[in-house]
Design a protein around this nucleic acid. Structure first.
Length: 511
RNA sequence: GCCCCCAUCGUCUAGCGGUCUAGGACGGAGCCCUCUCAAGGCUCAAACAGGGGUUCGAGUCCCCUUGGGGGCACCA
């Protein structure tokens, strides 16, 4: 038996057609059984990048052959997620294309045809074993510490007899006839050649008793029919990889270029992402689901930059737009090792991309937050607020705590917050009164007009700027944390500022 | 249990036999700036899992061990 080493050396590194002058056809093929999460988004992103980089086509195909696990609305969430991320596909169930339909349940004749073809060629067989019997065999094998595999009962049937039973209406499935001897070699661009001993492989079911295909048949047949050139999928498919290449070779189809992406691990790096872990993330204000991320105030630019780097390394300059990713993407740089999810890095990229947004753009994105909070938003004012809060936002919904007070009729500061550090309430009130006198003497409270005299006051009182301005900040904004004070006050009517300061003085005097 | 994949700072990674006293980013620590919070600038701590080979030379190639992950469905 040959070792992996010899085998690897005996096969030259395959030419995989990654030259950007060769347009690829890639597909993102999710099943509508759950929510769109980080893993699926990254796969779709890499598909998209490869397609755009090579001038090829990015296709969305819905793998809905599992009727039992079908989830209503899942397909829409998938589509919404792709659109939100900006991963526009060229062919898909809702937009059509030359190789449609793009939903597997609408392509059943195709699978039936190929399953028959496989039987015809002797690469598949009818199987009449009941789930019950299969389960008993499984238990027996487990008990005897034997590999768990189909025991070949129906594979031994005479083809004529099997055909007769099928015609008689007996319930059956179609299984792939995996070679008993020899080995199967397949090539993954990221991982190199992988070798399996055929005796370790199973006779997988290709067509279920309900007449629908399993993934193995459906995906391979569709990839062939849709002229897919590169298959990017999760590493959970590595174990059925030999089945897939054997199936393709049995039918004489051209083999696509394969790459199996690693899975995401939970933030600690210890163990895979689980339901429990997903719930924990949500508890911390994060999520592994694309739609949640959107609802949480993350922007596509940030999310994309974050996930593109989980499994793809760049030496420097890791802040990128989608277009820049297309320019720089190269599957040669993909990393096969599992990656731990790091949410603080998501925050970083999100904040960074928010800061890079043009004022009008950011204004348009945060406007709905104020409207949903019940405020009437003046466009011109919002445009002036944005530069003040832009570098403070990690997520879009941070705009509320920073700028909500701009839209409020009145603010209601906590009395204790009005008291400057190191001063008594009475002393603070006195300082506030002095500020009132200065500001009320100004015809207009602008940054330029207000700051010099107030600084002079700070100087004259022998206090620190933060003590004095702190009182003013809380009085005017109602909060201890706010955008820059003087710039902010410019956006408020003079009488509003004076009124709020007056209210603060009263509150301080009553303490 | 069986098959397969993976392995550089806490995390994401650069590295494709000598240029590595191992580079970047997030996070952390400190300093600067400063009206709060941020942003920004500077500095610091932090890694080649272990053991064998191959080679003049190994983070880089091979093997083993260990550790992590995936799969073993009429699910995808």
């Amino acid at each position: 038996m040959k070792s992996n080493l010899e085998a690897r050396q005996s096969i030259p590194r395959m030419e995989v057609g990654l030259d950007s002058s060769i347009p690829v056809r890639v597909r993102f093929a999710p099943s509508p059984t759950g929510r769109m999460h980080l893993g699926s988004a990254r796969t779709a992103l890499y598909d998209y990048l490869l397609a755009r980089r090579t001038g090829g086509k990015f296709i969305l195909r819905i793998e809905d052959t599992d009727r039992k696990r079908f989830v209503e609305g899942a397909e829409q969430e998938l589509i919404d997620g792709l659109r939100w991320l900006g991963l526009e596909y060229d062919e898909g169930p809702d937009i059509g294309g030359p190789y449609g339909p793009y939903r597997q349940t609408e392509r059943q004749e195709i699978y039936r045809k190929w399953a028959d073809e496989l039987i015809e060629r002797g690469h598949a067989f009818y199987c009449f074993c009941s789930p019950d019997r299969l389960e008993r065999v499984r238990q027996e094998q487990l008990k005897n510490k034997q590999p768990v595999r189909y025991d070949g009962t129906c594979r031994a049937l005479e083809p004529e007899e099997a055909r007769r039973r099928v015609r008689a209406g007996e319930k059956h499935v179609i299984r792939f006839k995996m070679p008993y001897e020899g080995e199967t070699r397949a090539y993954d661009v990221m991982r190199g050649e992988i070798i399996w001993q055929n005796r370790d492989l199973d006779d997988a079911i290709l067509l279920k008793s309900d007449g629908l295909p399993t993934y193995h048949l459906a995906a391979m047949a569709d990839d062939y029919e849709m002229r897919i050139t590169h298959v990017i999928r999760g590493s959970e498919w590595l174990s059925t990889f030999p089945l897939h290449v054997n199936l393709i070779r049995a039918l004489g189809w051209p083999e696509p270029v394969w790459m199996h992406l690693s899975v995401f691990l939970k933030p600690s790096g210890k163990g895979k992402m689980s339901k429990r872990e997903a719930a924990a993330a949500l508890n911390d204000g994060y999520s592994i689901f694309i739609k949640d991320l959107r609802d949480l105030g993350y922007i596509p630019e940030g999310v994309l930059n974050w996930i593109v780097l989980m499994g793809w390394g760049v030496a420097e300059d890791d802040v990128m737009t989608l277009d820049e990713m297309i320019q720089r993407f190269d599957i040669k740089n993909l990393n096969p090792a599992p990656a731990a999810i790091n949410f603080s890095k998501l925050d970083h990229f999100n904040g960074t991309h928010i800061r890079r947004l043009a004022v009008e753009d950011l204004a348009g994105r945060i406007k709905p937050y104020f409207e949903r909070a019940g405020y009437r938003v003046d466009e011109a004012k919002l445009l002036r607020i944005v530069p003040l809060i832009r570098e403070r936002l990690v997520t879009l919904d941070d705009c509320l705590p920073f700028a909500e007070w701009f839209f409020k009729e009145n603010v209601s500061p906590a009395p204790e917050a009005l008291v400057a550090k190191g001063l008594t309430p009475a002393e603070s009130a006195a300082v506030a009164r002095k500020m009132y006198n200065i500001l009320s003497a100004l015809p207009e409270i602008t940054h330029a007009a207000a700051e010099p005299p107030l600084r002079a006051l700070v100087e004259q009182l022998g206090l620190s700027p933060s003590q004095v301005f702190g009182i003013l900040r809380v009085a005017v904004t109602g909060q201890t944390v706010s955008p820059p004070l003087f710039e902010s006050m410019e956006l408020l009517p003079r009488h509003t500022i004076l009124q709020r300061l007056q209210n603060a003085i009263v509150m301080l005097e009553q303490m």
